[in-house]
Structure formats: C-alpha cells, structure tokens
Design a protein around this nucleic acid. Structure first.
Lengths: 232, 232
DNA sequence: GCAAAAGTGTTTATGCTACACCCATGT
DNA sequence: ACATGGGTGTAGCATAAACACTTTTGC
C-alpha cells in the first residue's frame, strides 16, 4: 500500500533528565553539546530516534552511551513539540527521566561527552527548552515519589535511613522529623535491616538496610502516601 | 545553517481519548476510520501534526473537528512509538485525553466521522494500538482523579451530588457510602449549593451545585486525597 | 399510602504531628 | 570527657470508615 500522502514527517529526538544521588546530594547529569548549534553549551543528553527503534530504546541507548549503565529506571515524561524549539530543523523531543546511583556511574567524567554532575540548586543555563524539561522532571519526581517508592532507585543496594532521609529532604526541599520519618518508612515493609553499619558518616554508625524486592514490586503501583502534603 | 544530516524524520500524529459523561454513564467517543488501512473499523479520533503546529494544537484541532468544542480540558498522555504500529508508514502517536460534558457535544452523530459514544465497559475492538491507549487513559484518569478534582470537567455547570457520586463510582468501579462521600466532597470547599433542585431523577429532587471556580483553580494542583485507596 | 431517591450524625479506629532524651563511638 | 550523629516512645489531634433512619413527593 502507498504511504500517507501529503504528510510532512518530523525529526524525533529523545532527551534524558538523569538524576543521581551519591549518598549526600541529589544531582543532575549534563553534557557539553558536541555539535552546532549551541556547541559547547550545557545540555541534556539526547539523540535522534532511529528507524526501527522505539523511542524508549533510543532513550536507553543514549543513556547507556553516556553512563555505561543498562537496566536503569526510566520513565517517559512528555513531548516538547514547539515548531521552532530547535532552530536548525523542526524536531520534537520526547523526554525521559532516569534515576541512578551515582556510584554505579562507570565512565570517567570529561570523556567524549564532557559530562558533569550538577547539584539541583546549581543547574547552569541550558540550551533550547532543556531548562523547562528539567523543571518538569523535578516536579514529576516530587509528584511520583510522594506516592511510590521510586527514590530507592537512586540508592545503592545497601543504604542507611539517614541517607534516605537526606534524599527525601532534597527532593522536597524541606526537613523531616527523623522519628516520624523512620516510623513511616519502616511501616511500609520495604526495608530489611542488616546487621552491619555504615561507619563512614558518624562515629556511632548507622545500620544498613536493603530493599525488600518482593514487597517493592508488590507495592510499587499502590498509592503509599510517603509524603503527606508535598509542595507541587 | 544546514539541517541535521543523516537523520530520518518520522510522521507524528496525535490521538485523542475522549471521555464524556451524560449524567448517568461515563463514555468514550470513537469514530469509524474513513480511510485505509483499517477503513470502517472503530478508532480513536486522530490526525497528523502539521508543519508549524504544536502537538497540543493538533490535538485541539482534531477534537474540535469532531465535536465542535473548544477550550476543552486536555492533557498529554504519552507517546506510542513502536516502529511497526502503523503498517503503512512509520508514525509515532502522541496521545491526549480529553474530558467533556456530553450534553455540550454539538455535532450530530453519524456525520462525516460517524462517531459514537460507547460506555466504558462496552468498548469495541479498536485499530492498531488504540486499545492500549484507552487502557492507559483509563488508568491515568483514575490516578489523577484520586488526587485532583478533574472529574468536574465532565459535569455541566449545574450538577447534583448523586450525579458526581455516580461518576466517581464509574471511574473507580466501586460503590461509595453516600454520607462519607458527601462529607468529603463538601469539605473541599469546591461546591456552591444552589437553591433549585433537579427533579428529573427523583421525586424528592436533588439540590444543584456549582463549582467554586476560584477554589477550583487554587486547589487544582494540590493533592486532595479524593479517593483514599484507589485501585490502580 | 407507598415506593424511590435524597439527605443527615455519631462512634470507632487509624494515621499524622509534635516533641526530647539517651546511646555509641572516635577523638 | 565531649562532640557528633543515630536511635527510640508517647500523647493529642485529625481524618477515614462503618453504620441506619427520616424526609419529600409523584404515583
């Protein structure tokens, strides 16, 4: 059969908003764009969707190129489609956000993409509409993390409660009461206490926990009310 | 400057999942596709994104073509991008869901698009991946309506509490206690009681209410906990 | 007068918030 | 011994859930 007549195809790209946590700070991974226009300006990692490639495959490929990581938590965010958002040629961009444990990031910084981790409150000016994409991703992260345990995707296999609490505090930009926070977290049944402690960050040491993966899967899509009245 | 070399553009379409409520039932608006392939099969209303048109403009245009309505509540859902989802030519589709009061629907049925309203539990087989799109939209509606007062977008200016309750019961496929439901709804401050009654649906008659638009705007983005433990 | 739907209150249980002190250890 | 961060309990309050009877009116 013939192709659809009279229709104009458009370039389709993906852009990844990559959040990472190193145990202390929540950060965003940005690259220095390697080609014109806006060469050498800070940018999200992105790429074009190839023929015979699903958009989510393109996003995984692009993320893997930059970080060396596979099987990363990724979620489709939304489409940016202003006709003139890219000055060279009309391109719509599908955004994805990814959550990774920075310690797993294997590539050297300053490699071919000249990538750097930026704390969320010190994001530089970004090209095109990438600033808006980041804002939307931050909002979605807050939204989703209030209801589902996605922030565990940012943590290593073994983590401590003070670490998780720091992470939540950075996502919501508030301070929590550690007694209430601990109680609520434990009540989810998601944590398995380990017998060893992290002694790097305090003298007394904080017990390590692991995620109960069965409970995690089971409860993931439920509304968990992690954060009662999140700013949104 | 030159265009991006070596990249393959793709057709970009929008498809609209149009929910409507007539005071009794929650329904979906479908059309009989007017061209090949899959001509005369049931389909979502859609269309191609034109040059110089934003995707959301395309969605509004397409919705207006079908219903005659403007300024309808619409929200971007997600992208469907499987390389072979359309057998004729690669096309990615951006889905939007729309909420409308069926009584406002102005066009005659069986016009050029041969559109019909289907109760949600009697959706026919749809072309391509449109069935998946509808499932995703139903899920998103449940998700969002549990936290934000979007279901009011389906109601006429004047509505009764039993009507809203029926609507919520259909969205979540459960029965609510009318005392608890009424109390919770009123506690939001979203309703303004009118002095007249709807006498069509009962002998006693149910008081009409209007939406308090200022409160609606103010509370829209807050988490309202309309439904405590929604199935999702 | 009766059938059909609207409207209204109370009690109980659960979850959330606020709040302060002791513990373990490295220096 | 002291400074640092980790860990724990309780009481008051607010919200949610369960539950049944009265009201209105068209027929």
């Amino acid at each position: 059969m013939n192709k659809y007549a009279k229709q104009s195809p458009i370039l389709v790209a993906v852009d990844c908003i990559i959040f990472g946590f190193d145990g202390y700070d929540l950060k965003l991974l940005l690259i220095k764009r390697g080609f014109e226009p806006e060469k050498n300006k800070w940018s999200l990692m992105g790429g074009f969707v190839q023929p015979n490639e699903k958009p989510e495959e393109a996003a995984s490929r692009v993320l893997n190129q930059l970080t060396g990581l596979k099987n990363v938590y990724m979620e489709q965010l939304s489409v940016f489609g202003e006709p003139n958002r890219d000055p060279i040629e009309r391109t719509i961009s599908i955004t994805y956000f990814a959550l990774i444990d920075i310690k797993k990031y294997e590539k050297q910084l300053n490699d071919e993409y000249r990538a750097e981790w930026f704390p969320l409150d010190r994001i530089p000016r970004l090209i095109f509409d990438h600033g808006k994409m980041v804002e939307q991703a931050k909002q979605k992260l807050r939204y989703k993390a209030a209801l589902h345990p996605i922030l565990f995707e940012l943590l290593p296999e073994k983590f401590t409660i003070p670490q998780i609490m720091t992470l939540y505090e950075q996502v919501y930009d508030v301070e929590f009461d550690k007694r209430n926070f601990t109680r609520k977290l434990r009540s989810t049944g998601l944590l398995i206490k380990q017998s060893d402690k992290d002694k790097e960050n305090s003298k007394k040491g904080a017990f390590y926990y692991k995620l109960d993966k069965a409970t995690y899967k089971e409860k993931f899509t439920k509304f968990l009310n992690f954060i009662s009245n999140p700013a949104y």
